[in-house]
Design a protein around this nucleic acid. Sequence first.
DNA 1: GAAGCAAAATTAAACGTTTAACATCAAAGT
DNA 2: ACTTTGATGTTAAACGTTTAATTTTGCTTC
Lengths: 331, 331
Amino acid sequence: MATLRDVARRAGVSIATVSYVLNGTRPVSPEVEARVWEAVAALQYRPNRIARGLRRKRTHVLGLIVPDSANPFFAEIARGLEDLSFAHDYSLILCNSDGDPAKEQRYLGVLIEQQVDGIALVSASATPAHLAILQQRGIPFVVVDRELSGLEVDCVLADNFQGGYLATRHLLERGHRRIACITGPSDLTPSADRVRGYKQAMAEAGIAPLADWVRRGDFRAESGYQAARFFLQLPPSIRPTAIFACNDLMAIGAMRAIGEAGLSIPEDIALVGFDDIVLAAYVIPPLTTVAQPTYEMGRVAGELLLRRIQDRNHPPARHILPVQLVVRRST
Amino acid sequence: MATLRDVARRAGVSIATVSYVLNGTRPVSPEVEARVWEAVAALQYRPNRIARGLRRKRTHVLGLIVPDSANPFFAEIARGLEDLSFAHDYSLILCNSDGDPAKEQRYLGVLIEQQVDGIALVSASATPAHLAILQQRGIPFVVVDRELSGLEVDCVLADNFQGGYLATRHLLERGHRRIACITGPSDLTPSADRVRGYKQAMAEAGIAPLADWVRRGDFRAESGYQAARFFLQLPPSIRPTAIFACNDLMAIGAMRAIGEAGLSIPEDIALVGFDDIVLAAYVIPPLTTVAQPTYEMGRVAGELLLRRIQDRNHPPARHILPVQLVVRRST
DNA sequence: GAAGCAAAATTAAACGTTTAACATCAAAGT
DNA sequence: ACTTTGATGTTAAACGTTTAATTTTGCTTC
């Protein structure tokens, strides 16, 4: 297609002049400017961002690595980041690590080779060793949703502790004492923090949760189903009257188990989830849950990233976004 | 960071030689080759894909434009395409048009400037005019999910007609005669085709659907809710005993309306959706629906795209992927 | 021992920009 | 009249690769 050279030729000026007109980097006489714009239009010229990136050493491309962009939670983060990127004329390269550190590492390599200006990632591994490569090369990055132990970098998190606390307090206020908890994978900070919130609220109410009240899940519906079945077969004297599930999918799995047992929600067992996925409002009964500002997390990640691209030694920021208890019919 | 030049210096050879070693494009003596690899490792050299792209006029980057990547349907397509891209060492730039032709157009411009090797898009506008710019510039692209009238290009579609037909047949076989339909936006071919399938099945059963049995929705839950409420207030003699909703979200909206009216599913009203989103299996009762091979659509789109990148004048292919009726408890 | 030849390495020109450095020229200052 | 100056242009060198064309090297072969 048409290049700067073609435009220059048609406008009868030098390549440099065209560049100055296009970028407004230096004053150019009105007549020349007009001729240049005419040529640009006539040739349907479009700057080659690859060439520009090579020369400027800035590509205006960002990278996002998530475990699974089809998961509504990450999809929403991606959407927030993409919107912000677009607003600032950045493009976004999407990467799926499948939660596999090796794959994540390969993607990091690709993004580095692609010379992206910055990377947002929901890391697949809890250890920060994988990110050394970024620090070595001085590539701006921001960590989203999961915290990495002892790493001084920009990060964006939801207030998971507060979420677990609010959910449990809510159940306590409804009069429940035997409150169970379905956790997520325990090495992930979001899950761990939610459980901490749960324990804190219980402790404040003077209740020591039985070991049988805390079951580990994997954030998928099936594991919630299994955990709930476990709770339901406990002897009535210690059987929970309420369940706090660390995410909505597991809560919905639990719903099914409760339904199958012929019990009703919330009369027999109350239920709180976490995430407020779209359909939490549509299950029957609608699910009480803790809403995270997912989209917002993506946006903020983008803001931090752009700021760091501007100023590489800005002090690292740790953004903790507020969560919100959404009370529906399941409690 | 380290460049080819640095590697060459350290290995004591010319830049070209290093390039030949890295790409295996020409034989190089074993000793030299070894020295080069040593230098590459020592300097942690990584090729600059931007420079390579400029020179080769191939960036190994694809673009994907969807209305909303946070929508599970498009998210799944994106995932399929991303996986395929990764497998072939392509990167994927994600773009959200919000269904706005103007925004889509801006993205096309960006992707062109970014020199992507190909573009997959779920077009925001039904007219193919917007895509002229791609054809002019000879940029490979593939149209996904929606058909564009009279455009001879690669495309990937689900068999929406068949899906509507299967869903309706299923209801007919369950003995229903008064079957209603909640459509999507009628200018989109997926919705239109599903409705055609519905009408065809009805016609084959010798039933002429009343006008009141077909209500238009917008693919969102709320519109399904409204449509169902409309059906429920029809006089008993013509009130539908079954509803085919053109997507699951609307079906779930309808569920709520039916529940609120104190009716039960499927005894009073049977319900079929479309899409088989994850949670269709978890609502109560689990929803009978038509599953689309969404992920597969993304993959196939990628395959078509790569093929066209290889061979620009391959005859355009129209891939119609099969759908599947998933029978659950709502019918 | 010169000619011929294949193999292996190098040189240098692209690719399409940006931008520092330099050139031109008219108007202004002395 | 002769430098200064400021405004506007141009030239050319990067950026980091790839790759065609060329050179160098080391062997054969007669």
